[in-house]
Design a protein around this nucleic acid. Structure first.
Length: 202
DNA sequence: TGAATGATGCGCT
DNA sequence: GCGCATCATTCAT
């Protein structure tokens, strides 16, 4: 079976230093066995949010009901609701007790684009998942999936040995503090990076 | 074609 | 009440 040749990312992968994990995530495949079918995409853009000293991190002012999973074990999905209408998906990193996570900002659709497209039609291929809110909308992820274990069989990441020639770094997007840190990573050669107006036909 | 803005709900002070 | 790890649309240039 195909699943045998792809290695699912395990707990140890996520437990490492967040910036290492973030860089390694570019080119990996995210798979979601949703109620409507299996969706998958190639990750092309992420951002790191690390600990209590990062002013932009949700954990900067301590543990709250919302950010609890960030303080838990690595390899868990942290999903929050934002701007009254969007969701953002993060992967919890670092050993338990060290709050940190990686925001998934953009991906290239692989399997079941039509399912993603049913939620938002007339999209072009590389415009379907090119933003954190758009990714969750395309995949149908909401707070109901907050806390899902990424080492399980519902939502997980795997290594497809996808080639990434150039990983670019930049300041994180959409925040007002911590903008001096170059904690955004993206595949320079992808057309699905957020903010790219071009896009290509399906 | 770049900048400004409205939509919309919830977590946190 | 305020502000937010966003996005699509509108408006000005």
């Amino acid at each position: 079976m195909n699943s045998k040749i792809f290695k699912k990312l395990n707990r140890f992968f996520y437990s490492r230093p967040t910036l290492e994990v973030a860089s390694d995530l570019i080119g990996k495949q995210i798979v979601y066995n949703s109620p409507n079918g299996t969706l998958s995409a190639r990750i092309v853009e992420v951002e790191a949010y690390i600990g209590q000293d990062d002013p932009a991190c949700h954990a900067a002012r301590g543990k709250t009901k919302r950010n609890t999973v960030m303080f838990g074990k690595p390899g868990i999905a942290y999903i929050y609701f934002i701007y009254g209408m969007y969701h953002c998906l993060n992967f919890v990193t670092e050993p338990e007790g060290q709050p940190a996570a990686i925001l998934l900002r953009a991906a290239e659709p692989i399997d079941n684009m039509d399912l993603m497209g049913l939620r938002k039609t007339e999209e072009k291929r590389f415009h379907l998942l090119n933003g954190p809110g758009k990714f969750c909308r395309g995949f149908g992820l909401t707070r109901e999936q907050n806390g899902l274990d990424l080492t399980g069989d519902i939502l997980y990441l795997q290594d497809r040995n996808s080639v990434v020639e150039v990983i670019e770094k930049s300041p994180r997007i959409g925040i007002k503090v911590g903008t001096d840190l170059l904690w955004r990573f993206y595949d320079k050669n992808s057309n699905a990076v957020s903010g790219n107006k071009k896009g290509l036909p399906i």
